[in-house]
Computed example of a mutant assay.
Amino acid sequence: MSDAPILLAAGGTGGHLFPAEALAHALNARGATVDLVTDERALAYGGSFPARAMHCIPSATPRGGSLVAKARAVASLAYGTAQSAALLRRLAPRAIIGFGGYPTVPPLLAAAFLKIPSVLHESNAIMGKANRFLSGHVDRIAAGLPNLSVPAPLQGKIVVTGNPVRPAVLEAAKLPYPTFDEGVFRLLVTGGSQGARVMADIVPEAIAALPETLRAHIRVVQQTRAEDIPRVEAIYQSAGVHVDIAPFFRDLPLRIAQAHFVVSRAGASTVSELAVIGRPALLVPLPHSLDGDQAANAAVLQDSGAAETVKQSDFSPALLTARLAALIDAPQDLASRAQAAKRVGVPDAAERLADLILSVAQARAS
């Protein structure tokens, strides 16, 4: 195996770094050398990232703000592209793959200029702006979800790989759907890596409104912003409902596997993990997500029969109380909905993506 690395370019958020991490594990298992190109946000995370080295490149987001701010962002991207070109000349990588976000723009543009083989991974069903900008400059586009929407000229570049998931997700996927033998209904509530305020506003009130006979059966795990924890805990305590609450759960894949039902946002990572683990859900897409990508992500699980999608404008305590009451009272169909989720899961997405990036590298080399 060549010592020339495969470069992974990812913005410093979990939504970009988690699939990059999963691919890095798959490439390392094949004997490939992996380097990560990212921004300063990933510095704290990078110590555990399975790469030989991490390279920090300047970037910025040229949208919103004043004209001066946009001009500064463009200048930062240009500077980052020049730095990326110098880095790529020094490393001479076999190929580079970008996982989205503006931090991927400089290294992918530099790769196009230097004619280095490249792949773009899009985790959402609707391509983000940075990836749209880069899509004409790469050899292949890896689709994380099967309903990825792209312009007609790009269709020939699309390869559906799925979204790589972390090893912890694959371990959690081995757990069967939990039974109801103990008479307990386990609910997981999560709003993405930061926790959604709407979940704190709606879910506790909905559960508190359940009849006492149903409240006695429910156990809640809820991810909530730190500043919302006191009021959320107070509602559950007053309702006599057991809750495990925290701003972040490091073992979230296990928590998903232990749940009978999940209420969450519809980020690409969340949708993919729900599918691989196989759990039914009520999804509330972020209403202001770029280009409506979360609604399109949710459609994958909804169309499979595994999930129901509710607009945030319709997401009310009364609606959720009614849904939960029906589920707790008659949970028999939840196991079949869990199986429906599993049918659209792609547990080997990291391997598929590793096959793709290595084949692109080999095609250019031969």
Rank of each mutant, 00 (worst) to 15 (best):
M1C: 06
M1R: 10
S2Q: 10
D3C: 02
P5I: 06
I6N: 03
L7F: 04
L8P: 08
G11D: 03
T13H: 07
P19S: 14
L23W: 13
L23S: 14
A24P: 06
H25Q: 12
N28I: 05
A29M: 15
A32Y: 05
A32S: 01
D35Q: 15
L36I: 11
T38Y: 12
E40H: 08
R41A: 00
R41T: 07
A42Y: 06
L43F: 01
L43C: 12
G47R: 07
G47M: 04
P50I: 06
P50C: 06
A51I: 13
A53P: 05
A53F: 10
M54H: 11
I57D: 05
S59V: 11
A60D: 11
G65L: 11
G65F: 11
V68Q: 12
A69T: 13
A73Q: 09
A78D: 13
G80N: 05
T81I: 05
T81H: 07
R89Y: 01
A92M: 00
A95W: 04
G98T: 02
G98Y: 07
G98K: 07
Y102I: 03
T104Q: 11
V105K: 03
P106M: 05
P107L: 04
L108V: 09
A110F: 03
A111S: 13
A112H: 10
H121N: 09
S123V: 06
N124V: 05
A125Y: 10
I126R: 15
G128S: 04
G128F: 03
G128H: 11
K129L: 09
F133M: 10
H137Q: 11
H137M: 12
D139A: 08
R140P: 01
I141D: 07
A142D: 02
A143E: 12
L145P: 00
P151F: 02
A152M: 05
A152W: 08
L170I: 15
G183R: 08
F185D: 03
R186Y: 05
L187I: 13
S193C: 02
S193E: 11
R197M: 07
V198L: 04
I207D: 00
A208V: 02
A209G: 01
E212Y: 02
T213R: 13
T213S: 05
T213F: 08
R215A: 01
H217S: 14
V220I: 01
Q223D: 09
A234E: 13
A234D: 04
Q237V: 10
V241K: 09
V241T: 12
H242C: 01
H242N: 03
P247I: 11
L252N: 08
P253Y: 08
I256E: 09
F261C: 07
V263I: 15
A266T: 09
A268K: 12
S269R: 01
A275D: 13
A275W: 14
R279N: 14
L283P: 15
P287S: 08
H288F: 15
D293Q: 15
A299G: 00
V300T: 08
D303A: 14
D303W: 09
D303P: 00
A306Y: 10
E308T: 15
T309R: 12
V310A: 09
Q312F: 05
F315T: 06
P317A: 05
P317T: 03
A318Y: 03
L319V: 06
L324Y: 05
A325P: 04
A325W: 01
L327A: 01
P331L: 00
D333P: 00
A341W: 04
D355W: 10
L356A: 02
